[in-house]
Design a protein around this nucleic acid. Sequence first.
DNA 1: CTGTTAGCGCTTTCAT
DNA 2: ATGAAAGCGCTAACAG
Lengths: 366, 366
Amino acid sequence: MPSTHRDVAPGPRPTSRDVARAAGVSQATVSLVLGGKWQGRVSPRTAAAVREAATDLGYRPNLAARDLRLGSTRTALLVVPALTSEFFGNVYAGAVAVAAEHGFGLVLYPSPQGVGTARNPFESTRGALDGVIASSMAADALREIRGSFPGGQALPLVMLDSAPPTAPGDPGHREPDAPAPAARDTTATVNHDLADGMRQVVGHLTGLGHRRITHLGAAIDSWTFRVRSRTFRESMATVPDAVPGSEPADLSVGGGQTAARRALTGPGPRPTALVCDDDTIAAGACKAVRRLGLSVPGDVSVTGFDDLSLATALDPELTTVRLPAQQLGAHGMRALLDLLAGSFTERPPLPVTLAVRDSTAPAPRR
Amino acid sequence: MPSTHRDVAPGPRPTSRDVARAAGVSQATVSLVLGGKWQGRVSPRTAAAVREAATDLGYRPNLAARDLRLGSTRTALLVVPALTSEFFGNVYAGAVAVAAEHGFGLVLYPSPQGVGTARNPFESTRGALDGVIASSMAADALREIRGSFPGGQALPLVMLDSAPPTAPGDPGHREPDAPAPAARDTTATVNHDLADGMRQVVGHLTGLGHRRITHLGAAIDSWTFRVRSRTFRESMATVPDAVPGSEPADLSVGGGQTAARRALTGPGPRPTALVCDDDTIAAGACKAVRRLGLSVPGDVSVTGFDDLSLATALDPELTTVRLPAQQLGAHGMRALLDLLAGSFTERPPLPVTLAVRDSTAPAPRR
DNA sequence: CTGTTAGCGCTTTCAT
DNA sequence: ATGAAAGCGCTAACAG
């Protein structure tokens, strides 16, 4: 008894031809309908029939074939310094959501130091790319990325927290990370308003009476941290009697601890507040404070950046600048889409807020 | 002046035909040589010529075309509960390294709760897959994954810390997560030796004189946490005078804090040690201890699982079970490769070690 | 040893 | 309003 059920198709994946056959039309019609461009070219009745046949068979287009035909892969690459931080997890989540809405795929490349991965992102990458999004990358890593792409400069690139905004009418001085003018139309930047965040930190601290404040800056040569340093100096300069200090710190708990110890035990009067470039450094700073027999925030106030879950895991909970990483990713993907459509316009940086918790308190009197 | 430089090819990506032309051979020969299967079919001289032409032009094969032709994509999907934890960052790093060695791609799917992502991993996935690796997934999520794949049961699946090992000759009792026999040959498991980890924790604590020990177990129905609970009970049962307790905890700092408060303020004598299913819960537990005016480890010892960077960010640093997440990923990818090659054999679980730090101390006397 | 050929599944003119 | 046919870049039979 040869059974030829039509709706329970076993065997391999159905193709658009199978759908066509099932709907009694041609492959071209199927493509039109399923591609959403059948308005006024295919009768509503046949369109419906095609769609029914498609769902019936559980048809899913073969991406490889489509990509081959179209030349474009509708895929972007997200380059991050390390996957290990929840910050980048959030950036990814934001970006991938927007990508999905527009039928784009997003593949991850955890950059340089990521253990065991190929040095060149494009070697490790499957197929071709329509663009790349780079988040919080160091200046040289970024250069390397652009350079290493075969046919380089043409690839649309959006940088997240990685470069100053491309000022439309700004002549003269150019920051080291600023994209070369030639690449202007294939490059976009999306940033958190880090300067404002730092200003809020300094305002909060000076408002509490702190004057001797030391900045524990991440020892990484990238825009995202340079802004913090510069704004810290500028903000402190506006406060009478302010005594700013600064200590470079490795981007880790241990790094923060070491830097904080240096800051706290150096010559001159001891700072009453430590402003850290990141929550991890802040965690180290808190440890250092206690190792010296001092207390947070009684003797020394400590602040961070990011507002990772680490911030509330610490005790006391960390006062920190909350960066909407997910939004950053989402805006980044949107910017890339705009770039691809040739319609990108720079937007203002993403606003950030200061989450005031228990690691900051009024400066100890004398 | 029409210039026709051959070695500085501008314009679009070179194809294998371009390489063929440049090397003065046919496309087929190029494919053979670059595919590495020319032994005894192409003369070494021509092979060399082809390779030179290829590098010369900066040729990179078009993956879409290759995939279309081969039907297979050499791509695996890694499903993780959330990208936000560095644990999964490490799993990914380990897996992607092995994948790259074998010319495989690895795409990430941060599962269910991940904001804004499609519910079905295969909808969000570009192109076809050769297999999937699922890490530390809850039982139902795992079921859903298998079910949702079009043509389901056939897809090779390796589960990391997600199910008991497939005991070759084990009849009778089957755990709820155990793969159905039908799927046996397309399913593999790779696990940390979590039971041993828990045994080490209990041994360490009872060695320090603790008897009233409460387990703060993650409130998630998955194998990885069930093993911890069961082993905790079993281990405690072997210790005379031991008074085991247990409290479910949400997998977060807040969850740990709440659970610990319940454990510490409940009726009966207060536990002197809290065994947590994960470092995050442990962080919350430490906070709870202090909120009650007690100290870690003076009054209450606390232990975790994972050994994330959080463990040393805390103060005092956390005694915790170190799980080699990166190895887990690597072994997982290898297992998938073996499955694909039809030559998988179950291996013993990955050994874990107890990192003894400052959050555990001898039990307070009386 | 090397070249010719066919075809993977899809989109897109161009006819009808 | 629909169908026929070509071709994206690659690999694998099959000839020579």
